[in-house]
Write a protein that binds this DNA or RNA. Sequence first.
RNA 1: GGCGCGGUAGCCAAGUGGUAAGGCCGAGGUCUGCAAAACCUCUAUGCGUCGGUUCAAUUCCGACCCGCGCCUCCA
Length: 383
Amino acid sequence: MDDKTIRRSREEKRPLAEVTQQWTDKFHADCAALNCLPPHVEPTATGHICEQVDMIAQLEKKGHAYRAADGSVYFKVASFPEYGRLSHLKERELKLGTSLKPQTADADEKEDGSDFALWKAHKPDDGDVGWESPWGRGRPGWHIECSAMSKKHLGETIDLHTGGVDLLFPHHENEIAQSECCNGATFSKHWYHSEHLLVDGKKMSKSLGNLYTLDDLRAKGHTPMELRYTLLAGHPRKQLNFTLDSLHAAQKALATLRAYRATLPASGGDAAIFAPVFAALSDDLNTPGALGALFTIVNRGNAGVDLPAFDRVLFALGLKLDEPAAPKAEAPAEVVALAEQRWAAKKAKDFASADRLRGELAAAGWTMLDRKDGYSLEPAKKA
RNA sequence: GGCGCGGUAGCCAAGUGGUAAGGCCGAGGUCUGCAAAACCUCUAUGCGUCGGUUCAAUUCCGACCCGCGCCUCCA
């Protein structure tokens, strides 16, 4: 429900819900491809307007919020002494003259610069996006949805709240302020912030143009599993500099695991052999450590390991090995004809012809892979 | 300027007060006519720099250098 999405909806003359649904669908497809388990509940901000309004009303009643002249409602940060604890911000410590951004448009409406919007009054740019409320027509501020939906679906206090470090301030700080002031209870017992994925040494972002979508990677011949493995190879709490090279490393590592899995018996193993892997995962989600432990075991051979135990590890890591490394390409008829000739020549032990035909195939852009009982054709790797 | 994360082999990356997991690349080998695949072996006296503590530091402490992120309505 942010300005940008509303603007896009108006420009394309499509309902807001349709625009957001398009991205939601894309997100779901990518998550599925990456083998992420779907959440039990996926609430939407627009589906919880009442809950948000209710929460804002309570905050106002308890003196944590105030109405501005234009009909917007702001959270009064000064009313919550704990504010800033999560991000170690004792007080507003912004120093002028460095990277301070220009004052926001609603600066005049707020009593204090650190206050933030709970409810934004409707303005012409919003078009038909808006809901009626005790404060008039408008829409919720962008932090309150999380507080309201979390309360409704998970209760006043949750065990763990996760997110990227960029959300630490102000978003999570504001969530805490809203929820704790409204409910009078601890919002989240634990926080886990993941670091950024870096591309070319910078935070991946649309504005920098150093952004890859899953489809981009697929177009380059990589699989979603390779991406998943690559992300697993870095600690979630450390920045990971993503490179296309790392996808290649992932591809090889997955192939090794796939080949190893094929050697495993259906039963008779000792599940405890993988304890180090789970120990690493249990230790602050140390996924690189877990992969290291996994390969240490793999390198020792398959003694004591069976399929069910190995598959439990794969499940825990969310890795699926049954995916082909690259999409199969259909060779043109003339290429197949060459391949048939070479296979026949090879069978006849006419190796000179066979080698010549391999060369011709290569010139045509195809690599012929021999097996015991047949061959396959793959597009030649580009140099 | 404030707050936070990080600097470990060519690349990616764990980790510990007692002398460096793992993956990729590379090299050698086994096996296949060749190629590919698979498998085996090898590859950091060293963990940003300089000091300090210690019998012992990459691991603790201090200073410094470098990279990245956040610092308010973009979610």
